[in-house]
């Protein structure tokens, strides 16, 4: 049974096909409005995530399907001590496809090994979040019209930011890519990502602590939030939280066609004043996420 737990579970060709599907959905929504009629998506959210859950639910409804599930662990059998493996087996009897978010890293993988229906990882702790990466990829494609020959800046928490690791993994498969990694010392990209992805694929990259210096060169700027929930130490979190704040002043040296992205939610790392700048693409990213989730649900149900 095909599941998607990590973005590398999908080949670049499959991602290209899904982007084509998503673009077709955008152009011809009616064509897809009954494609999942009679099918049920189970959204198993063991930790709250309004955006991702509603995106999956909206995606399934727009495909004509139905949704069952729960939005936090307290309303599931997990409170009675049920294992993830058992939950996956039980839900397989009720639904046709699962979208699972879980605070424990690897939980969706365990679910996929026990379910008899496809499982989509909707985020497991600080580990993987492949559908966010799909949203990011569609955004880059729609804004830039290509995946090759781009200089992409990642700014903020590059250590714990799972969306950063996934997008680097996905973009490393295209040609002419250069990464500029902007972060404080404590939140630098882990060395194993640099070694296994960047160095292994001979991808040029620069590490810097200065967003201002990097700005003029960027085609895409991917901002991230310093996530309090990933820190064991409150003091460290508070110290690093305000490291980088993007405002109109910093954008003054940016390219006119820069694409500013953020996986959201933002705290304060992008000034609200930037929202009206035509280069701000983070709310388009949310919409693109729904289209790519539609394309993924369709693909997995067609293959099941």
């Amino acid at each position: 049974m095909r599941s998607v737990i990590d973005i590398i579970d999908l080949t670049p060709e499959e991602i290209d096909d899904m982007i084509k599907t998503a673009c077709d959905i955008i152009d011809n929504p009616l064509k897809y409005s009954e494609m999942c009629k009679g099918k049920k998506l189970a959204t198993l959210f063991f930790e709250p995530s309004t955006r991702t859950r509603l995106s999956f639910e909206a995606a399934m409804y727009e495909l004509g399907g139905n949704v069952i599930g729960f939005s936090e662990a307290s309303s599931s059998s997990a409170t009675k001590g049920e294992s993830v493996a058992d939950t996956a087996k039980v839900i397989s009897c009720y639904a046709d496809i699962i979208a699972m978010r879980h605070p424990k890293e690897g939980a969706p993988y365990v679910a996929s090994k026990n379910a008899t229906i496809p499982v989509i990882n909707a985020g497991d702790g600080g580990h993987n979040h492949p559908t966010q990466t799909l949203a990011d990829l569609l955004t880059i494609y729609r804004e830039k019209g290509r995946f090759d020959n781009l200089t992409i800046g990642f700014c903020g928490d590059l250590k714990f930011g799972r969306t950063v690791h996934s997008l680097i993994n996905a973009m490393a498969r295209y040609t002419g890519i250069k990464f500029i990694l902007i972060s404080p010392e404590e939140l630098k990209l882990p060395s194993y990502v640099k070694k296994n992805v960047l160095m292994a694929n001979n991808i040029p990259y620069v590490q810097t602590t200065s967003l201002e210096e990097a700005m003029p060169e960027l085609d895409v700027l991917y901002m991230t939030r310093v996530q309090g929930e990933r820190f064991f130490n409150e003091e460290d979190y508070l110290r690093l939280r305000d490291s980088y704040i993007l405002d109109l002043q910093k954008l003054s040296t940016a390219k006119e066609d820069l694409c500013i992205m953020h996986p959201l939610p933002r705290v304060n790392e992008i000034s609200v004043a930037v929202d009206n700048d035509p280069r701000a693409c983070y709310f388009k990213q949310v919409l693109n996420g729904k289209y790519m989730r539609m394309a993924l649900i369709l693909k997995l149900l067609q293959e099941a």
């Binding site: 993830v84 424990k104 890293e105 070694k195």
Partner: peptide, 28 residues
């Protein structure tokens, strides 16, 4: 934060990910 800390009777599996540096990583 790993699922192996809570899931009952789960196999603890590590995969050799970087042979030259002798690095094993948790499967999950």
């Amino acid at each position: 934060r790993c699922i192996t800390t809570v899931e009952q009777e789960i196999e603890h599996v590590f995969i050799l990910s970087e042979e030259d540096e002798k690095v094993y990583r948790c499967l999950y």
